[in-house]
Design a protein around this nucleic acid. Sequence first.
DNA 1: CGAATAGTGTCTATAAGACATTATACT
DNA 2: AGTATAATGTCTTATAGACACTATTCG
Lengths: 225, 225
Amino acid sequence: MLLAVDLVILTLRAGELHVLLVERGVEPYLGRRALPGGFLNNAEEDILAAAHRELREEADLDGTSLYLEQLGAYGTPGRDPRGRVVSIAYLAIAPGLPEPVAGTDASGASWQPVDAVIAGRLRLAFDHDQIVADGVERARAKLEHTSLATAFCGDTFTIAELQQVYEAVWGVGLDPRNFYRKVQGVPGFIAEAGPDRRTTKGRPARLFRAGVRRTLQPPITRPDL
Amino acid sequence: MLLAVDLVILTLRAGELHVLLVERGVEPYLGRRALPGGFLNNAEEDILAAAHRELREEADLDGTSLYLEQLGAYGTPGRDPRGRVVSIAYLAIAPGLPEPVAGTDASGASWQPVDAVIAGRLRLAFDHDQIVADGVERARAKLEHTSLATAFCGDTFTIAELQQVYEAVWGVGLDPRNFYRKVQGVPGFIAEAGPDRRTTKGRPARLFRAGVRRTLQPPITRPDL
DNA sequence: CGAATAGTGTCTATAAGACATTATACT
DNA sequence: AGTATAATGTCTTATAGACACTATTCG
């Protein structure tokens, strides 16, 4: 029995939710896109440590600086044609990286819109479509009552940027004024980051950083479908 | 590397949340209480199927009739002194069973109050304290926006019984009148079960069964701490 | 009738959503 | 000034929580 780790790494690019995929260079599913991941190094490697290692090796990302949580175990017999493989999936959230990932040792790592995967336009290897769907659903749910959204942002961010996270992950439009009020009303969600401000075109926006609280009370509710 | 399945089976007894535990008959942790569970039968057994099997073997429960969901994988090296064991934990919810479980092949299976485990008064083998805590927290969270509470009840139940579920799992007291209104206001949560009524002492209560919806909109919100 | 439990109604404070207005920068 | 973006304010409606009342059984 082999144990593997698979990563659902989500980020925001151009206001759209993306997932990091690699193109498989070997059979099975040669040429097919798949989640980054791989087998445990040895019988004693910690699962979480393996997730960090794959994050480094396959995505050139530093696991200490980004959000990482276990998604679950996927072990249906037959999910891997090579034999029995149980895979522990992890969900990672990265702040928006403009470049399509540099310095990876996996051939053809690239960001792909999650919509394409969920809608079935982009079929992945193994049961990775399901894992991506589960990861996205987990992220969507967690936006409501945790501060997960800040993991999509850089160290500091504006409220408008935070709103883009919610809009992209949920796939909805939100009223900026009500969003502003709501976010400010959750104690400990965000904290002002100095008198600094960023400049683009109009009035400069206040900068914030992630607050202390990791659970939101009251929650940022998702609009009804 | 060995793969195991552990079960957090929750139920309500006398208005208190209980978890099914077995007393270990072999080393390590001989005599210590632990979660029911065991190793996969062979390299091809499905994980979910193994959970069902352990449910049958160790708790004499029929997996098809109760709620079962994966909790996560626990694989820290050293969690099992015998060697590397990765365990997939499952959360099961059973309707209140008055008897302390009959016909199990595990020595000393018994229902224990979860409070004792969470408060640390009852120490379990391996990392099972943590798994129980995770399972209870999952159940608590899921009561809010899913129909999980009905899994604690029998086929039919009164609204007062449903309220007891929320109170026991959350460990809070709820206003019966507001609860009644709220529960009735969630479309598809519960459905009237015929003109039947049950009789105890006062006015007979209407009987309900679980509705079609598994997600609650609006949610049954947990009171602030 | 009185006790016990079930179910409905009312009032008030708070939160949510729609939408208008003011503020501060840049060219 | 004109434009673009940020931040605040107001109004209306829905929801949550506290609490009072009516209904239906039994002894």
